[in-house]
Design a protein around this nucleic acid. Structure first.
Lengths: 299, 299
DNA sequence: GTTCCGCATGAATCGATAG
DNA sequence: ACTATCGATTCATGCGGAA
């Protein structure tokens, strides 16, 4: 038993690569071979946001700042791969900035296909009150592809259906129905076999997820469920996932947990160090979970 | 008592005007005085959709087709008014078309302010399955304004707070929950804030509404709750609401029920006739509701 | 162990104040 | 006048301590 577990641990360590490159995304990307990545999922610093950690790219320079990066991303992505860009334009002088939609148009000129736009509905968005607008509770998840023949494994993100919705809705007020909606299954740890016997349905292009806040050691741009969902949807085991703006490493952790190779690029060295150290913990978690799994099926 | 009710009916009929103009939006709009409309809310024919009724504007001509109309809309809108444009780009050859985001950029050049983008999350979206995309369950509700000082009556659309729903609901009877259902329409007499106390929160920019199950002859673009919500948010009684693509008249019915004047423009004469006839029914409904209300408060 | 309450904490935005 | 910074506003969530 002990030997078996140790073998398994070695197996994991050897099989799945998780590489972190410190540095500027545009520069590091040039070192990476073309047509090697199956899924790019990232949340770049938004315009004029996160000035303390990143430079805080001004609104009117955002598109020209991002285009060299997206050009490289197009190069390293496999023809069957997918690029998910999490972004939201900010309000400036009471108006929505247009740099995101301008970016879409420019990326198309680079050769990207704008395949889809998912909506991330943030159930717990930032509070506040203003005379002329409500709280902003959604962000864009833009899907770009290199070709129309991209890989998509829809059955991996199916949701339990039917009685779940029915029984729940009975006990909820109308307003609660309005507020709380179908939840995206967080992939890992959740046992799909629990769903067997129930009806499954394909999800839609609206994802309902709360932002991660408070007492976690790392503050992440998006909750782990988000990259998790797209990794399940667009990759299979041993595929290559990339996050050119790694930040606290949410994408890499999700990828590793699900046995995908991954590459993270991050300009802030401190983040790189933190993520590197944390990866060991993830490994251990995985090992323990898997060990428990092996044990359970061994009986 | 009888006289009183009849007087009231006349009062309603005289006060609120609901005008329908048959014809092409661009042409009819030229006949309308500038700075007279408080809220424009419409769902124009989408590109290449509904060819049978509208002739179907091709995707690559959509922007230039719409711009003359939006120019007139800018003229007739009051400086304090708001324009809500319900639109969604369609998928063409596996890719999202860009005419909507191009339209935003062009309308800004006309002088429009792109103030906000609401998301209409369609809870019961159209079923279907495709190999490379999920069901599309959201649409854009683009908010444009003429100036930064526009009217907004936020307190009219407040919602019960989340925490309230969780804790208080246990103590509420089934009938209490049912009462909540009737909140949508008239806005008559019923004041939610009185009912719930001060446990209300402002909504966000994501609207969760089911699509209308519409078995009607005409293509109902959106459910009545949608114009209803924006009419409450951006106008007060006796204000002027306009829908330059009236269709089945959903906007006009909502406006009339809430005692707003309204103008509808519609190129298909049959639709005009149907809506005109139906307006009498709405009136009667209104009369009865008010009669009951008067009676109740008369005791 | 449960359930319940208190509290900190967000990819926010506006308006006022300060250089 | 134009930019930079700061305080006020506000609510869903998950944690920790208490009953």
């Amino acid at each position: 038993m002990i030997w078996k577990d140790l073998d398994f641990r070695d197996y994991i360590k050897m099989e799945i690569k998780t590489d972190i490159f410190p540095g500027d995304a545009a520069e590091v990307l040039r070192e990476i071979d073309e047509n090697t990545v199956d899924l790019i999922i990232t949340s770049p610093p938004y315009a004029d946001q996160r000035k303390d950690t990143y430079g805080g790219v001004p609104v009117n320079e955002y598109v020209e700042w991002f285009l060299p990066i997206s050009k490289e991303l197009l190069r390293v992505l496999k023809p069957t791969g997918t690029f998910i860009l999490n972004i939201k334009e900010r309000v400036l002088n009471g108006e929505r900035s247009t740099y995101v939609i301008e970016l879409i148009l420019e990326m198309k000129k680079q050769g990207w296909l704008w395949t889809e736009e998912f909506i991330w509905h943030k159930k717990n968005c930032y509070p506040g009150k203003w005379p002329n607008r409500f709280r902003d509770s959604w962000e864009r998840l833009l899907q770009f592809n290199k070709s129309k023949q991209f890989n998509m494994y829809q059955e991996n993100v199916m949701l339990p259906m039917g009685d779940w919705a029915k029984t729940r809705l009975k006990n909820l007020s109308e307003t609660d129905k309005v507020r709380d909606n179908s939840r995206v299954g967080s992939g890992f740890g959740k046992n799909i076999s629990n769903w067997i016997g129930r009806e499954l349905a394909y999800p839609t292009n609206v994802l309902h997820l709360a932002t991660e806040c408070s007492n976690k050691n790392h503050s992440a741009a998006f909750p782990e469920e988000l990259p998790c969902w797209f990794i399940k949807l667009f990759t299979k085991e041993n595929d290559m996932v990339m996050d050119p703006f790694m930040g606290s490493g949410t994408t890499l952790f999700a990828a590793r947990k699900m046995r995908r190779n991954s590459i993270g690029i991050e300009i802030v060295e401190d983040y790189c160090d933190v993520v590197k150290r944390s990866l060991d913990t993830v490994e251990l978690c995985l090992f323990e979970e898997e060990a428990a799994y092996v044990f359970a099926t061994d009986k």
